[in-house]
Amino acid sequence: MDMETLYRGIREGRRRAVARGLSWIDEGQARGNDLVGRLFPHAGNAHVIGITGAPGVGKSTLVNALTLQLRRNHQSVGILAVDPSSPFTGGAILGDRIRMQDSVDDGGVYMRSLASRGHVGGLSRATFGAMTLLDAAGFDVVLIETVGAGQAEVDVMRFAQTVLVVLAPGLGDDIQAIKAGILEIGNIFVVNKGDREGSDRTIRSLRSMLGLAHPQAWVPPIIKTSADRGEGVEELAQAIAGHRTYLVEHAIWGQMREHQAENLLEQALQDIAADIAKDRRLQDTWQKSVSQIREGQPAPHFARELMAQWLKATAEGE
């Protein structure tokens, strides 16, 4: 498929085009960046919801139940589920579809598994582009499920308008809950497996921890769910809609586009830095820099030198 066919297919919401476009973005080459650039002006309508939390709290099951609820509310749903890649082989087993089968059997739902491919922060490098694509393809809601890892998976707040932090009873004591990061990014807290013993205690300790946080205009609600039975999911959908209303009324919704454009730029900068580090034309300078840094020289000096050489070599090459 060429760029034009792909672009039009995505704008018309065609599944095959959406799937192929996501592969382009995932491979991290120029054509993927070009595609994201063309689609970006058409994005900004979807409600992007990030779902994060430790492994085993039931994120995939919750995404499945939430998707079924959103479909009952007549919203179309695009799902991106990120699973970790092996740091050794780069391979991955992506198993989130297993728990999402009920909701995925529906023309109004599209789900894609992404491997983190060495990116830290709970998402893959391609997640932002992938989200932009699903948004431009016309999905009302885009759900992003992060790698289940714990306390540093805060990337999602930079992309999503609403972040759900999912907890479950019996996983870690109260001290875990005051750790910075994950508790500060939640717009809505979900205590899943609510039918299990200890869920009320988890809610109480969460409530007291959140009470210690700085007072804000938006007070994050705590919703108890049993996602495998669909319990509490209707309330969760209402809380999500409530957060959207809050963002729109406080003019925060519109500002997110600005942040997202900034994010594209930041990512492009990071990509250039990665290109420089791998550039074989700079190998000699790289080696010399490494030995000088070992002798006690400051690294930023050599980074600037590499960058200057790269710019020069690239300009000459064009």
Binding site: R15, A92, I93, G95, R97, I98, V104
Partner: peptide, 24 residues
């Protein structure tokens, strides 16, 4: 070094082909 999508047991042909298409 491959990315493997596993969808679990008892899949219908329709589910399998939809997953193959969606996951490209």
């Amino acid at each position: 070094g491959m990315e493997v999508i596993y969808t679990g047991l008892h899949q219908t042909p329709e589910q399998i082909v939809d997953a193959a298409l969606s996951e490209d």
